[in-house]
Simulated scan of single mutants.
Amino acid sequence: MATIEELLTTNEEKMKKTISYLREDLAGLRAGRATPALLNKITVDYYGTPTPINQVANIGVPEPRMIVITPWEKTMIKAISKAIMTSDLGLNPNTDGSVIRLNLPQLTEERRKELVKTANKRTEEARVSIRNMRRDIIDGIKKAEKAKEITEDDSKDGQDKAQKLTDKMMKEIDKVIEAKEKEIMEV
């Protein structure tokens, strides 16, 4: 049976990974500024294998509202353009035969509110994941107490530590979503 400290340490790492994933996920939400992270989730068919765009092309941001994609192979231009058009980014790629340009239009107030809702939905999924991890810790502690491996006091102490860890991670998530909301709502 894992000790209370092992349970806490293992789950703390999982919680940190959840927050890290949330940060990456939210980076892919368009907030009015061009960033290569917008294309992180888009894959393109590269010789029969779904491959992230950044592994088949250079991605640059020459202007605040423009992304330039330079495929390593000219034959990839159509596939990359198609992948961008079918994505949920709502962008239309412009091609001149050797590079793809993505112009990011100014976000409307309505679109900004939609993006904030999407960000909050993804954030809530992360919160649920962390609460599930807290439940796993507490279940492990209760099983150890029931099996007489730890005392009632140790069980109570471990559950308090699990709650404190969860509260700390929830504050971190709040900081992440607060920063993203601010970024999206800036005009």
Rank of each mutant, 00 (worst) to 15 (best):
K146N: 11
L29W: 01
A27Y: 01
K14H: 09
D154M: 09
K175M: 08
A179V: 02
K74S: 10
K164Y: 10
I100F: 08
I173C: 08
K146P: 02
A126P: 04
I177E: 08
S87F: 06
L22Y: 06
D157W: 11
Y46E: 12
D96M: 09
A162H: 02
R134H: 04
N11A: 00
N92W: 00
G48K: 10
I67P: 01
R131H: 06
A34V: 02
V68M: 08
G60P: 00
L7M: 13
Y21A: 14
E125C: 03
P50A: 13
A119P: 10
R33V: 06
A147S: 15
S20N: 10
R122H: 14
P93S: 11
D45A: 12
T43I: 07
A37V: 00
A34Q: 04
T166N: 13
I19L: 14
I184W: 04
L38D: 02
V44K: 02
D25Q: 14
M133W: 06
K14R: 15
N94A: 14
K82W: 02
A2C: 00
K175T: 12
E5I: 10
T123M: 06
R122C: 02
T10Y: 05
E149Q: 14
P93C: 11
K148M: 05
Y47C: 02
T86C: 03
T123P: 03
E73S: 11
M1H: 11
N92Q: 15
P62H: 02
L39F: 04
T151G: 15
I84F: 08
T9Q: 13
G90C: 11
W72A: 02
K16G: 04
D45L: 12
P71D: 04
S98N: 13
M170F: 11
I130T: 09
T51A: 08
R65L: 00
D45N: 15
A34M: 01
S20F: 06
Q163M: 09
L8I: 15
K168H: 11
L165A: 14
E145G: 03
M185N: 05
M185G: 04
I53W: 08
N132V: 02
T86D: 12
A57Y: 05
S87R: 09
K180A: 03
A37W: 00
G60R: 07
Q163N: 13
I53L: 12
A119V: 08
E114W: 07
A2K: 14
A2F: 10
L39S: 04
S98R: 12
K161A: 13
V56W: 06
I141Y: 05
E5A: 15
E183Y: 06
T75N: 10
E152Q: 14
R30H: 05
I59S: 07
S129V: 01
S129Y: 01
T3V: 02
I67E: 01
Q163L: 10
K146L: 07
E125T: 08
T123D: 03
K17Q: 14
L7A: 05
